[in-house]
Design a binder for these strands. Sequence first.
DNA 1: GATGAATGAGAATTCATTCAT
DNA 2: CATGAATGAATTCTCATTCAT
Lengths: 220, 220, 220, 220
Amino acid sequence: METVAEAATCEAHRRASRPRADALRNRERIVTAAREMFVEFGPDVPLDEVARRAGVGNATLYRNFPDRAALTHEVVLAVTCRTTDRAEEAAAAESDPFAALSRFVHAAAEERIGALCPMLSGGFDKDHPELLAERRRLEEAVEGLVRRAMSAGRMRTDIAVGDVLVALSQLTRPLPGIACPDIDRFTHRHLQLFLDGLQAPARSELPGSAATLEDLRRGH
Amino acid sequence: METVAEAATCEAHRRASRPRADALRNRERIVTAAREMFVEFGPDVPLDEVARRAGVGNATLYRNFPDRAALTHEVVLAVTCRTTDRAEEAAAAESDPFAALSRFVHAAAEERIGALCPMLSGGFDKDHPELLAERRRLEEAVEGLVRRAMSAGRMRTDIAVGDVLVALSQLTRPLPGIACPDIDRFTHRHLQLFLDGLQAPARSELPGSAATLEDLRRGH
Amino acid sequence: METVAEAATCEAHRRASRPRADALRNRERIVTAAREMFVEFGPDVPLDEVARRAGVGNATLYRNFPDRAALTHEVVLAVTCRTTDRAEEAAAAESDPFAALSRFVHAAAEERIGALCPMLSGGFDKDHPELLAERRRLEEAVEGLVRRAMSAGRMRTDIAVGDVLVALSQLTRPLPGIACPDIDRFTHRHLQLFLDGLQAPARSELPGSAATLEDLRRGH
Amino acid sequence: METVAEAATCEAHRRASRPRADALRNRERIVTAAREMFVEFGPDVPLDEVARRAGVGNATLYRNFPDRAALTHEVVLAVTCRTTDRAEEAAAAESDPFAALSRFVHAAAEERIGALCPMLSGGFDKDHPELLAERRRLEEAVEGLVRRAMSAGRMRTDIAVGDVLVALSQLTRPLPGIACPDIDRFTHRHLQLFLDGLQAPARSELPGSAATLEDLRRGH
DNA sequence: GATGAATGAGAATTCATTCAT
DNA sequence: CATGAATGAATTCTCATTCAT
């Protein structure tokens, strides 16, 4: 369920130096475990549990990520990165502009982009250059999708990338403790509803100005 | 900002016995503080902090609510209750069926219905009769709103109450740590987008079956 | 062995409010235990051990002293304070000026003034106003003793208060792990040697300038 | 500042077998780093830090010294050894008996003999034959210095070698965390004061019996 | 022989919950 | 009743020591 197209471009941050094969494996496993558990139990899971799930001692986790902030940083980076990859993939795979956007939206849900929301609570530097850059890349990719859909007259035009990303994120936020296996069904259902809404002509003037991701980032 | 129409009908659960005026006051203040802080910091805030904000000693909190579960229960009850009140209020206030639904949706956001999501994580009995009953009352009220809007041909018909409530909840989930004062603006913006989507004719077949609130409740 | 003249003036910092008799007792006991154990095992003893020796749960310790720094602060304050009391007591008790100084020096050893040295390593704010004030009080008291001895022609005159206090502190530093019961004997022996040296006429020009306590305090 | 006369005689413990040139270099560097860091941060510095400062991997440290005790042992040995060398050097270099003692005392400070005190806390075998022997050598050397000074009538006669060594050690104990660059100035100042006191005729009967180093060693 | 990585045991600190005034 | 204080059970993080390359 997890290893869909294990990211294309986002290998960027794999450090050049390749000191040890198994060490890298461990690092990967920790990040993966963390990503899963952040989704499943929220971003406050005991790090010892993460280590256990990753199959390493807790100290190994701490060697790789000096504190929770560092791990969170890495997970946020990974999710953002994989989501961006999905956006680019969608753009390439679908010729129809709105189909591309749709494909991306559903794919982003699978990448659990919504898991980022509860992480923004803090505990790590949201403005770290590495994150900033990745976020920018994501926004550009989605910007492309949105613009194409608009140009093709397939989508209402009073909406900004940030609106899409924020709504998308909220709608796909994990519900820790809800084990209901069909939860994904619902999520995709609501996303589809959201997408349908985007295609409809504007019925009302949306309140507020078009939201960008920066608006949220600036929080606090 | 908090005391809009301090609930009408939902006084039901005020225990019949009226032991002391100030005792009741305390209880009220604790629930209010908890509701606010659950929204602001998530459902894991230290209970001592809640007590402090309520202006009572921690032991007083524990006298009223033996454990965190009991307090969570009460807050969930209160939010549900107030939201139901808002639904009934909306039905009464607006003659136009879809306007009524819209009014309710935006009002529910103000009641922070989204704050319920992170509470479902567990730690309290989601199937407590009292909650069940209140949830039913909410569903009935919203059911009414939805049905009227559908009957008037103002809204696509492949949607269930649960869909509305879940999407609505997700879209209004608080973002603890995000102090951005305009966050509410965005929320209402996205809700409006959602409402616009509801009004549009069905563009696609929504995946999955119509969700009810029970689907979520059954989680775990 | 500990309760020699349980301090005269230094009750100053017993907070005015007297919220609970036993709570105060606990606080006292924690500080006492900490003072003893800092002397016996150095300033890095596990706080849980301190709590155990004080006969309270660890959390009680943390309630009174949010972190190690706070406890260290209190102990430093207490030792300084008690030492000052000893200085004033010595001045009052002995008519002979040098006898007064001698009495103070040996008394300071009993107060374990030397235990302050390893605490200066850091981990707490050495320049906290409360400490500054108390240190000043100590210096003034000792200044008085020294000046009187000098005026009476009983002591070489190229020495500053700080010299006395620093040498005194070093000579009385505890030797954690050394359980030798006669260790105090040795200490007093060396102090006496030091005192004898003070009385002798200057034989050599002492290198460096007269040290003040501030010189040490300023250490980064 | 560190490499004054990099030890003369005390090469004794360089193991006869000469397995590798660089291996020996490493061992040397580790001991040096440890000596410096014990002085600067106390005897509890993380061994990984010592390894880093020595420029080797931590495992190399552990190959040479199976545990902290072994490293401490070696450092104690080294300091004792170097100090003894200084004593013998002083005896040879100065014709005046008291000048020789003085020279030794100030030289011992430079060798950081005081750093031994906090190491006695334990964690290694203080009675290891190798240490015992080296300590005896030190005592004999200093004994010589003291006896000559006494015979020449240059020094009060109620003092034992142990008194000198203990007072000297205490007065030169490092103050970890005190970065004050003039700290050495003060130290030498107080040592001079101490030396002046030794030259003066006995003013008082020193309490306790003449201390020997064994008295301290026997501690615990 | 040397190294970086892994590990478990331990220490500081927090928090839900219980107790004594 | 109401309160501040006490407590033990987590949780985060560190470090001495061992292991795999």
